[in-house]
Simulated scan of single mutants.
Amino acid sequence: MTLKYVAEIMPSLLQGAELTLQIFFWTLVGSLPLGLLVSLGLTSKFKPLKWLLNFYVWLMRGTPLLLQLIFVFYGLPIIGIVFDRFGAAIFAFILNYAAYFAEIFRGGFQSIDEGQYEAAKVLRLSYGQTIRKIVIPQVVKIVIPSIGNEVINLVKDSSLVYVIGLGDLLRAGNVATSRDVTLVPLILVAVIYLLLIGICTFVLHKVEKRYSYFK
């Protein structure tokens, strides 16, 4: 492995890493708030909504993300819903990860003692104020470790976009490996993934420390 060869392939790997980061970022931006809203619906007493959301979560968690990507990009155009490659990836990833986050948040909400809701009523707080100011900060503290695991999985799952032809980090490494008949690009890909996951782990530890006063 020469430094010259590494310098030659790094631009394509970094370009692939940029796409990986875009998928990672937009998936979190879309799936975290959606998962929170779905979790509130899962704890709702309105049964039709609860049944519908339970079906959605069951469907997303019960089928592979790879299959969902294929269905969104190749299947939905049959009924007139067309996405470009990047849009299809973001749509599928958001729907998939929102289902997982919804179950995580639901567990967090159910761990909150009912007495806190009653105390909020005594203080004449509205339901929205109770959720926003009392419940959600505690839920976030509870779910951070589980959310962290899903965030790390997201970094790695982003490689699945190869199935719809997007040039992410792993695809760039595979192209260089096939062309040059060497494993050096894949070693560099592994190093970049490890760096990305290391950064995510560091940030998650900081967030967990930030919420450590909720005990």
Results as ranks from 00 to 15, higher is better:
81 I>H: 11
81 I>G: 08
81 I>W: 15
83 F>Q: 09
84 D>I: 02
84 D>R: 14
85 R>E: 11
85 R>M: 05
85 R>D: 02
86 F>L: 15
86 F>H: 14
87 G>L: 00
87 G>D: 01
88 A>P: 12
89 A>S: 15
89 A>N: 07
89 A>P: 12
90 I>H: 06
91 F>A: 09
91 F>V: 07
91 F>P: 02
92 A>W: 00
92 A>F: 03
92 A>N: 04
92 A>M: 00
93 F>K: 03
95 L>R: 04
95 L>N: 08
95 L>W: 13
96 N>P: 10
96 N>E: 03
97 Y>Q: 08
97 Y>S: 06
99 A>Q: 09
99 A>N: 10
102 A>W: 12
102 A>G: 04
103 E>H: 06
103 E>V: 04
104 I>W: 05
104 I>D: 11
105 F>W: 14
106 R>W: 01
106 R>S: 10
107 G>V: 02
107 G>N: 14
108 G>C: 11
108 G>R: 09
109 F>L: 15
110 Q>M: 15
111 S>L: 00
111 S>A: 15
112 I>Q: 12
113 D>Q: 14
113 D>P: 06
114 E>P: 01
114 E>S: 11
117 Y>D: 07
117 Y>L: 13
117 Y>W: 15
118 E>P: 03
118 E>L: 03
118 E>I: 00
118 E>V: 00
118 E>D: 11
118 E>F: 01
119 A>D: 03
121 K>Q: 14
121 K>D: 13
121 K>W: 08
122 V>I: 15
122 V>N: 08
122 V>H: 07
122 V>R: 12
